[in-house]
Simulated assay, not measured.
Amino acid sequence: MRHPVVMGNWKLNGSKEMVSNLIKGLDAALEGVEGVDVAVAPPVMYLDLAEQLIGKAKNKIILGAQNVDVNASGAFTGDISPEMLKDFGASHIIIGHSERREYHSESDEFVAKKFAFLKEHGLTPVLCIGESEAQNEAGETVAVCARQIDAVINTLGVDALNGAIIAYEPIWAIGTGKAATADDAQRIHAAIRAHIAEKSEDVAKQVVIQYGGSVKPENAAAYFAQPDIDGALVGGAALDATSFAAIAKAAAEAKK
């Protein structure tokens, strides 16, 4: 039985005060919420503070991070290794986000290397996939998502997806205010799951597939009512404790 995961990607946002207020506010707002895993991914320099605050929280919050390198140590200025992330309690690591693919020229193959490195170190990859607006309009959405997933499957085998999370995020819906309809998102999620099922039905049944792209409290319930949508990777709304908790509550309610 798949368990929904709602994860907040804070991107390049934060301060000590914001991190403190956000985690404390989220902890209070999650009181009594069960049936959903809630995770946050702050900028890496705030992992220490976030770990301390989460350690004092009454409700379980999973600590994540927004990126990882493919090296364990050495002369790689500005990068961070899986063991460093683990040292600060981070377990769910976002890779392949469209912003990394675009601004840092990360290829499908490079993202697959990150996926493999995270699995090797016992961390949970949150693998972002998704198409551009032009690809969507050309009807290439499923083909693009399949290609991005196959970079992992062809390198590591389909069983590598066990215990991982896939986040389908149409690029045209990230931070734009646009969002796929619940029916459209379900159609793509079902196609992604069917593609994985061609390699392994067991893996396809258990893998968590989140939706991301302008998810808000107002539209969250409609997404989570769909059978193949297992939570969300949330951007802007994750920067507000009340809004983010409302999304988590919607996921818990929908999957009862």
Rank of each mutant, 00 (worst) to 15 (best):
E140N: 15
R100P: 02
A116Q: 15
S107I: 06
W172Q: 09
D48E: 11
G64E: 02
M45D: 05
A65T: 00
I149G: 07
D108L: 06
I153L: 06
V19W: 06
L161S: 02
L22D: 00
F117H: 15
A252S: 09
A173L: 05
Q186G: 11
I229T: 03
G32M: 04
V142R: 10
G55H: 05
R193H: 13
T181V: 02
I94G: 01
N9S: 03
A251W: 05
A143F: 03
Q66G: 02
G177N: 03
A220R: 04
K58C: 00
A179V: 13
A164R: 04
V40C: 02
G139L: 09
Y223S: 02
I93W: 01
H195F: 12
A182G: 08
A151Q: 07
I93V: 08
A151C: 07
G213W: 06
A191C: 10
I153E: 10
A160Y: 13
L156N: 15
N13W: 07
P170K: 08
E140V: 07
H97K: 04
A28D: 14
G231C: 03
T242E: 14
R100G: 05
M18L: 13
E169F: 09
N162S: 14
T242L: 08
R2P: 03
D69P: 04
D87E: 12
I165K: 04
N162G: 11
K255A: 12
Y168I: 10
I93F: 00
E83R: 07
S132M: 07
V68P: 02
I196C: 10
I23R: 05
D202Y: 12
F88I: 00
D159V: 12
S98V: 11
V33E: 10
S98D: 13
I166S: 06
E140D: 14
A90C: 00
F115W: 11
T124V: 15
Q148T: 09
I129R: 09
H189A: 12
I188W: 11
I196G: 05
N59H: 14
G32E: 08
D108R: 11
K86T: 04
L22Q: 07
I192W: 12
K16P: 09
H104V: 13
R147H: 07
K24F: 04
A50T: 01
N59L: 05
E201H: 12
I149S: 08
S81N: 03
H92M: 11
E102L: 14
V142E: 15
V158A: 09
G78A: 13
K60I: 04
D37P: 01
H97L: 08
K205N: 14
A160Q: 11
E109H: 05
V40F: 00
A41E: 03
A220P: 03
